[in-house]
Nucleic acid binder design. Sequence first.
DNA 1: ATATGTGCAAAGTGTTTGCACTCGC
DNA 2: GCGAGTGCAAACACTTTGCACATAT
Lengths: 133, 133
Amino acid sequence: MITTKERLVMRYSEQRDIIYNFVLSSYDHPSALDIYSSLKGDYPKLSLGTVYRNLNALVSKGLIKRIEVSDGYDRFDKTLMEHTHLLCVKCNKMSDVELSFKDIINKEYSFKVISYNSLFRGICNKCLKEEEK
Amino acid sequence: MITTKERLVMRYSEQRDIIYNFVLSSYDHPSALDIYSSLKGDYPKLSLGTVYRNLNALVSKGLIKRIEVSDGYDRFDKTLMEHTHLLCVKCNKMSDVELSFKDIINKEYSFKVISYNSLFRGICNKCLKEEEK
DNA sequence: ATATGTGCAAAGTGTTTGCACTCGC
DNA sequence: GCGAGTGCAAACACTTTGCACATAT
């Protein structure tokens, strides 16, 4: 899954390949530990340090994005475009916001946004309905 | 500085008083370590654990706010209203955003926001103009 | 009197790193 | 064969916590 272009700057390794693939094929913004736990079954020799090292390498090559969750595990995202996240405190699912706050800030505050980190914690629609029962 | 109302739920302590005062009188979003280092001179017996414990207590009583700047240390803020920060990478000034992203998220995503953390890094209007010269 | 707060140091948590070994190129 | 990648465990950075003592009410 890592293409020739990327091999120019990163040598092939099976570990990185399966980690990268895992992030690419997941929709729930997994943490390093999530990835490690999920892959450990099939690759018993895999170590958590390797997962962290490869996630950092993939982020620094721009192949995936890091979502900073400062009071818990950082999560990783295949979606490269910067966007805002909603984290449900009940089910711990993380979902995406399509609205561009960056555009709003650029326009309304004459502030040239370079990067941003925006995380909303709360209760998702599904859990809210669950509570009402 | 801690009023009667707050004493109902928190007993007076000199340590908490000086920590609270420090946050109230500072404009630069100090971290626990900043606060500890600044006060240690005048209160040599003060311990870092006490600073953390009191900051947490003050946050949970709603007397101050925690800002997750995700560069390591959490910061603390006397401004109670949740708001978004703009951090200029040139002049390092931090300014506030008045727009309520919380309302936008509540309305557009049926997601009940409990708290949020939103920091934009970029270049402020003033520095942008400086660059154009 | 008692429950809350304190200083201290040890433990906890999420992440990084040093080392000797392995493997892609 | 060399240099990048690995597993492992120890170190790291920030924060919390258990304990015995102190203090506000």
